[in-house]
Design a protein around this nucleic acid. Structure first.
Length: 287
DNA sequence: AATTGAACCAACCGCCCGTCA
DNA sequence: ATGACGGGCGGTTGGTTCAAT
């Protein structure tokens, strides 16, 4: 019954891969293709576990891997997606061509986490550490607030602008609404508006930017200024109901048990304020 | 120059889930 | 129907490099 063991753990090499092992693995996969990791080591003449071969190929030897530092755009994608789906590194990696889940995970733990903390943002909740303390004190037991912020985390060119923003945010916070506007770099005609409601209920609600009838016209005429909402999220993960109700901005239901945003990305909006080539949510599901 | 600690990242570990015998 | 395995995933470890003292 069942299958035979993947590999004998004894007599297997461990640790760093040698150049020769790499060459054997690459050569074998080039001629036979990926797959069947179980039988690959023996066929390729490697004293490695199939798992180890798979990992080495996926994380290091694959020809389509992008090497070098992460770009600012990639940083943003990672942060935004992490705020949405958490430590789902493979899902995040799927939005970043040439990057692996392992690479992103390492980058998150070594760079982004620290960057967020230095800016007073909790990397787990993506909320301001200070704001969290304030709101926590006001929380009632049956009113658990979990808002998701996609705030920009990068240095502003002008501190005075930042101060203005902070002042505006504080005022909005007092009014029960956090609102932030920012012009997109390289696209001065585009204003990104972020709206955070600290007292949101627990339903999960992810919506694309509201539909603008003149969207096409605007994209044709880049000089025209238009506003798009970055994302509107009500997180219901802690709700007693396991099934989150997901609706688009125009209230049409997507799914009760899973979220399929393919219809959104296919429209071509700058969903999450990111290039849609990164944001094809076809395989993303949230329960 | 030597030592120490931080940072980085490749690789491993252990678990989960779908598939197969 | 059952139980074992393969593949995939997230978390962790350990070796290497770099910077500070």
């Amino acid at each position: 019954m069942g299958r035979s063991p993947c590999c004998e753990k004894e007599h297997m090499n461990k640790g760093a891969w040698t150049k020769e092992e790499d060459e054997r693995l690459v050569s074998y996969i080039k001629s036979h293709g990926e797959g069947c990791w179980r039988s690959l080591p023996r066929a390729a003449g490697l004293l490695r576990c199939g798992k180890s071969c798979r990992l080495r190929w996926i994380n290091y030897l694959r020809p389509d891997l992008k090497r070098g530092n992460f770009t600012r755009d990639e940083d943003e994608v990672i942060i935004n997606l992490h705020s949405l789906i958490g430590n789902k590194w493979s899902l995040i990696a799927a939005r970043l061509p040439g990057r692996t889940d392992n690479e992103i995970k390492n980058y998150w733990n070594t760079h982004i986490k620290r960057k967020l903390l230095s800016k007073g943002i909790d990397p787990n909740t993506h909320r301001s550490i200070n704001a969290g303390k304030v709101s926590d004190s006001k929380k009632t037991e049956d009113q658990v607030v979990k808002d998701v912020s996609f705030g920009y985390l990068f240095d502003k060119t002008e501190k005075s602008e930042e101060q203005k923003q902070n002042k505006k945010q504080k005022q909005n916070l007092i009014n029960g609404l956090v609102c932030k506007e920012e012009r997109v770099e390289h696209h001065p005609a585009v204003v990104v508006q972020e709206i955070f409601c600290p007292n949101l209920n627990l339903e999960l609600r992810i919506s694309p930017p509201w539909h603008n009838k003149n969207h096409d016209d605007h994209t044709k005429e880049k000089s025209t200024t238009y506003t798009t909402s970055r994302l509107y999220v009500q997180n219901g993960m802690e709700s007693s109901s396991d099934t989150a109700k997901c609706q688009t901005e125009d209230s049409s239901s997507i799914s009760h048990s899973s979220l399929d945003i393919s219809s959104i990305s296919s429209v071509g909006y700058d969903f999450l304020g990111l290039n849609t080539r990164f944001m094809d949510f076809r395989s993303l599901e949230m329960n």
